[in-house]
Design a protein around this nucleic acid. Structure first.
Lengths: 271, 271
DNA sequence: ACTATTTGTTACCCATGGGTAATATACGGG
DNA sequence: CCCGTATATTACCCATGGGTAACAAATAGT
């Protein structure tokens, strides 16, 4: 299909060796991309491995070169999404600002994740379809995400940027709205994921923000066109480039255990 | 079709006949109650009909006296939940008040529904597991629910009780928070369903309400259960479709089509 | 070219669980 | 008492799809 002819001529002699590994990883990711799309489209149980394979122009047993089984594929899809969320949390936690600021940043990023496949997998897939071990990992990670929301809210209450409220319920309310995006959002719609994300960041914090967004009644800020504060070009995804990738890891990622913690693995270009 | 011969017992001659029907309906509902609990507990695909039957102290084929198949059981579970929601909407629509008032009433009732099994089935079950026909019904009903939220919000914007906003997005945000309840709420927790519901009614409208909400958290509002018109004898199927069940041929339940509309069927004590 | 490894294929296995047929039992009615 | 209906049971079918074994083809290393 691609990149077959060159590389051996003027490239490093090591490259063929590495290119094979890279080809493998790319194939692995291709499987995941196809699988997550199919799982979302037809549901985990409705989707068959035969269909996954067919869309990749291979046959079912070939998939078993890369994954141990269907449930591991599911887990890996989820895992990628989880890493993306972890990155969001790490980034918002690292950045400064009040509790409310952090909360809003997290909402923006989380919301946008929910508009993409791997993000959707976090909320659309059923945890019970995973193996015992992986299910525990997922549950733990979900608690961590929940805690991030609660912590930011609690911090906001502390520093005065958020009205006094029950962080637990407030976090549930916010997370619910955000997770729901993963159910209704379709890329073809009139709203971009980014637009939805920024709208939600305002809307969901309007009720608990103490720094009132002061909607002066004279300006009707129609809120959904251009009222959003322009969102400083803070889109810096190119932070911390994809440096260390070939840290000779197990070529199967297998065991899947312990993979949900360190999210810095800098997945290349996802979504 | 009635006016048959009297009978021998001290009760109405109709009674044995009717008591048998009632027994049947009770068994049907028992199946549904068991099924919805099991589906929620283990997931639709994880739950087996054998297990449903086992919990009822019967065997799998006995279930087929009441339902045509697993997917119909799923649909009926969903249908009950949907009727409950329809009742909420009918009630809030009938009551007066501003758009915001209606919205809050709907939120309270909808939220409390989400803390019970049949309510959860609305958001936890996968629409794709239904038959083609039933899936269409569900989709239509979901749109109707969504529209209720949007309409109330839009009405609120009109009458000035709600800040100008995009009803579509606001409805998504609110519905998301509410639906999420169906995922995290567990009856054993520290918060009652009612408490969560009333908290959410305030919290979710705080951002869009124009009238500043004085949070008097002890809001013992409206009727929720007793407000339903008694209608004990209302078991007579209304003219139209639905027909009387004793049309020997299809002793199963009406193809499930068209059952999602009329919600006043006064299900006995659910939840 | 020869060999070992990776990666893919064809052909198959088989556990699962939804669904059905044949049949037994309880029961109301004449 | 017998019949018809409703209900339940036992025993079975079988489509589905995840998973595997045996084998073939491409590829790297020598």
């Amino acid at each position: 299909m691609d990149a077959s002819s060159p590389s051996s001529s003027n490239e490093s002699p090591w490259l063929p060796f590495e290119s094979r590994r890279r080809a493998r990883d790319e194939k692995r990711e291709a499987v995941l991309r196809t699988a997550v799309a199919l799982f979302l489209e037809q549901g985990y149980h409705g989707a068959t491995l035969n269909e996954v394979a067919r869309r990749l122009n291979i046959t079912k047993p070939a998939l078993y070169n890369y994954f141990r089984g269907k449930d591991e594929i599911l887990y890996e899809c989820w895992s990628i999404g989880n890493e993306l969320v972890d990155d969001c949390i790490a980034e918002t936690s690292a950045g400064g600002g009040s509790g409310l600021d952090k909360l809003r940043k997290l909402i923006v990023q989380y919301a946008e994740l929910m508009t993409a496949d791997y993000g959707k997998s976090l909320v659309r897939f059923d945890i019970r379809d995973l193996s015992e071990d992986n299910r525990k990992i997922v549950q733990t990670a979900k608690r961590r995400i929940d805690r991030a929301f609660r912590d930011y809210i609690a911090a906001g209450v502390e520093d005065g940027s958020v009205k006094p409220c029950d962080p637990k319920l407030a976090a549930f309310a916010i997370a619910g709205s955000l997770n729901w995006i993963g159910h209704w959002f379709q890329p073809g719609g009139e709203l971009s994921g980014r637009a939805v994300a920024e709208e939600f960041a305002i809307r969901l914090t309007e009720g608990i923000a103490k720094t009132t967004t002061q909607v002066t009644s004279t300006r009707k800020t129609t809120t959904h066109k251009a009222a959003v504060p322009a969102a400083e070009k803070a889109d810096k995804p190119p932070r911390k480039g994809n440096a260390s990738r070939e840290d000779g890891s197990e070529h199967h990622t297998r065991t899947a255990a312990g993979a949900a913690s360190q999210s810095k693995r800098a997945r290349s270009r996802l979504r």
